[in-house]
Design a protein around this nucleic acid. Structure first.
Lengths: 231, 231
DNA sequence: CGCCTTTTTGAGCGTATTCAACATACGTGG
DNA sequence: CCACGTATGTTGAATACGCTCAAAAAGGCG
């Protein structure tokens, strides 16, 4: 089992003030003084694929800004299975519920190699008045993401969903994109592992995607768009 | 076409201060003084089923607290169709994006007879500092709703989804519940109108639900739960 | 190299879709 | 009040799609 406790492969301290993606993150509006008023450490964590950031029902001690990579949010089903209900990508926040709820409401697991910043809930609570605007924005982004998953990844045929997934993984200007395990693809698109596999195979055969390395693909964006709304 | 402009069948002025569901709403924490500082009217609107509250892309001039009933949030698809991405029920807010975005991001339409309060964005902006806590809660509720729709209404077989819908429509303590048009049931569960229809028929035949009046059903909660996680 | 996990492929089956016909309800005007 | 038209709901038959179960192939990793 790969999805166990969080085992930071690597972590250190970062100066948020000179964060490269600062314009995207929660702390976008803070001043130097604000930073100085915070003495709690903010960790910078590297997550190999399959690493769990936190588990559903656990006490929500921190929230996490994604600097790079992709995280899945899953919830358990009555039958013991799970469903991926949303994704968290660059600039998004995982575990936002920590600001309003005592427990995490999802299990969050890295789908790709992912870098996150851990912000203890106390830090956020302390800076809360200054962060309000950005917190709203992050909630907003979270709702949008969730609705996007519903609209694009849970609607239409398996082929359509898969095509939309490939388009969503990276802007079409980016040469190639990395895909994750077929189980996760299935749980995300609401199809079985086997179907996910078959569709990927079919796309490869038709050269809509080309596997340049293990799970790294070059995509034909035009063809994918055709599939995504035609079938 | 029933889903046209908003045609308030009825509206008047309400004293928010003595609102029956005040504990549920955005204004829960406000004091008398706060209310006095607001002079803009807050309308109380009755929406017959099928009435659109607002349209996707329109300027977001207000947000709406649902006092009674049920509203669907839909988004258009590339092929011209639409998908219901979330529901808005009692105590929830439709059009929350008005607080952070210039345009509505969904089309909101009443599924059942529905009563809402219209809160102009200016009023909310003015009270914003006092409302922060409640706004966060509403965003949180919105995310939860959306994930619930994903988990319960967009996962599993058509029968399972339908069973979960009947359980979701009202607490099982409530004797009966009202269902809406088969088209909307389909768009919500991600199945076709015909399938929606067939499943409802089947449930009626098996007495899992009993139609006591047009689209009003008495439910066998136990049987529905069995279906919802067995099949 | 062998073991385990993940991915892939195949065959048969069941469910949901499609397309079509028919039924029912509702509202309007004759 | 009934006749008609439209919108909505219901049912049927054939098809297609995705699922299940099973087995084989292809990676990691000790």
């Amino acid at each position: 089992m790969r999805e166990t406790e969080i085992q930071a492969a690597w972590y250190g301290l970062e100066t948020c003030e000179k964060c490269a993606i600062r314009h995207l993150v929660l702390f976008a509006d803070l001043t130097s003084d604000d930073f100085n008023s915070v003495h709690l450490p903010i960790e910078d964590i590297w997550l190999p694929p399959g690493t769990a950031l936190y588990q559903q029902e656990q006490p929500a001690s921190a929230l996490f800004t994604v600097r790079e990579g992709l995280i899945k949010l899953e919830q358990y089903l009555a039958d013991g299975g799970y469903r991926i209900v949303s994704l968290v990508g660059q600039g998004d926040v995982a575990g936002l519920e920590a600001t309003v709820s005592p427990h995490y409401e999802h299990t969050a697991v890295a789908l790709l190699p992912t870098k996150v910043c851990r912000l203890p809930r106390d830090v956020v609570a302390k800076l809360s008045p200054k962060l309000n605007r950005q917190l709203m924005e992050k909630w907003h982004a979270m709702v949008q993401r969730s609705h996007q998953c519903m609209r694009e990844l849970s609607t239409g045929s398996a082929r359509q969903r898969m095509a939309r997934l490939f388009l969503l993984l990276a802007p079409s200007s980016v040469e190639h994109c990395r895909l994750f395990g077929r189980d996760d693809v299935g749980a995300l698109l609401g199809i079985t592992t086997e179907t996910a596999c078959r569709v990927v195979s079919d796309f490869k055969k038709r050269r809509v995607i080309v596997e340049v390395a293990s799970n790294i693909f070059r995509r034909d964006a035009q063809a994918l768009e055709l599939i995504s709304d035609g079938d």
